[in-house]
Design a binder for these strands. Sequence first.
RNA 1: GCAGUUGUAGCUCAGUUGGUUAGAGCGCCUGUUUGUGGAGCAGGAGGUCGGUGGUUCGAGACCACCCAACUGUACCA
Length: 520
Amino acid sequence: MSEKSEKPKKPQKLRARLPRGLGDRGPADIAATRRMTDTIREVYERYGFEPVETPTMEFTDALGKFLPDQDRPNEGVFSFQDDDEQWISLRYDLTAPLARYVAEHWDALPKPYRSYRAGYVYRNEKPGPGRFRQFMQFDADTVGSGSPAADAEMCMMAADAMEALGIPRGSYVVRVNNRKVLDGVMESIGLGGDENAGRRLTVLRAIDKMDKFPVDEIAKLLGPGRWDGGEEGKGDFTKGAGLSDHQASVILGFLKTSIGTAEIRSRGGFGNFAFSGDLLELLSTSVTGTEGVKELIEIANLTSASGYQDGRILIDPSIVRGLEYYTGPVYEVELTLEAKDEKGRPVRFGSVGGGGRYDGLVSRFRGEPVPATGFSIGVSRLQAALELIHKDKPKPVIYGPVVVTVFDRDRVADYQKMVGSLRNAGIRAELYLGNPKSMGNQLKYADRRNSPCVIIQGSDEKATGEVMLKDLILGAGLSDLEGDRDAYLQKQAEAQTKIAENDLVSAVRKILDKHGVKWN
RNA sequence: GCAGUUGUAGCUCAGUUGGUUAGAGCGCCUGUUUGUGGAGCAGGAGGUCGGUGGUUCGAGACCACCCAACUGUACCA
């Protein structure tokens, strides 16, 4: 069949690759995540929250999701069918699973029940900057309290967490709104009732884009609709809410008079709560709207009383959040720092945290109303944002272990013993396990591991009961000194010293201390 | 989903109006090196030119369709 002249077909190699929106994480990322979660945990616990974890998968209906479409079972969420044909999905947030947990363990839990958890959640959607298909959230919830004090606490805790993470005051803002106010405004322009549910949704979507588009684009979305190609007839058409000019102007007036971060700031935090006479009058026709305003004022008073009225927490009527389950106050944390990508273009990160009141979520499982409110930090997105913001700053060096080299392969046991004594002293150490044919290779390995120092014991040292201790961090500066022979030699001598074998641990520790090497 | 832009080595990119065996830098591996890493020198591996089909004597380049990535937009619990 095959002729000699034919090229031998290479076996097709399996391509090592990862689906989009997923990423591997190295030691530096992992260390950064750990620092972040430790910090957030400390804040949440200070607020009296206790940990609870739930699995990454739930029955699909428990997540509050309609059963997957037969044709596209993975639209939005990752789902599959169990042996018994029941649909199971990967969780897409930590709130819905918590609601299930609370409902399932209702009798055993103290009420109000406050708990926190960190974990990966999954969304099957288009990834972007700071947007992944697997990402970590750090969530806290208070179940069983309908008091605005519970909401106020979430906002203050969000602010505290940002500051604990080293984000300076003024570089982030917690925005608060109340869905009841939005509902009230819509009711006042005749959008109440079941028959207008679809239009209300469209209006909310339009309002939610206030941070993305200028006001006249929002007006289009409230009215007939908008072309995303920049001009009439270009790109995709987004159907609008079809409001009359009057209706649209009420909405826009509501948004415009009370927001604008700069304006809010200049008026000093909650002082902005212009909730002008006009607005109050407008809302007075709506029971829901009046209630919403009352709750917002309550939150404003509570947070101000605790000293958060300095711009850390602001009221912003354009905050909408999820359309599915929020029922009252909603909050969002945004970084106000500018982030730029490699090409120097500004990057939108969106919010790095958010939450709100979801009074209907637990009661789905129980016959009685159960108020609840919660807040989640998007750890992965926040980390990605901070990385981009700080990309010019040098990354902290992550040091590897002390490497004990193998000089004489008959004496591996001796070297292993040295490793053991270092480990017993709490120092990270390892024996070189590769082919010990040359010292060069072993040093190259230690270099790659970012080891602070290596231990060498050849026959000369063995004879005198000594070991050679080589300081790789100091030695790293050697190549810069080429041309200056004296300095070079001096530094080299400094970087490599002979010490008594018995002093191994203390000498290594001295080097670690000198360079400030800490592994945790 | 829709629209635009882009697909050549692990990475960043060259590749003349279509013309022999597709290149560079960085990275990687080996040697120099049976007592010393980051430098130097020498060598090596690595490519279905995103895929398929077409035009042509001849395609990495031209045409069609498909796929993927990026950006915007839609959806987003």
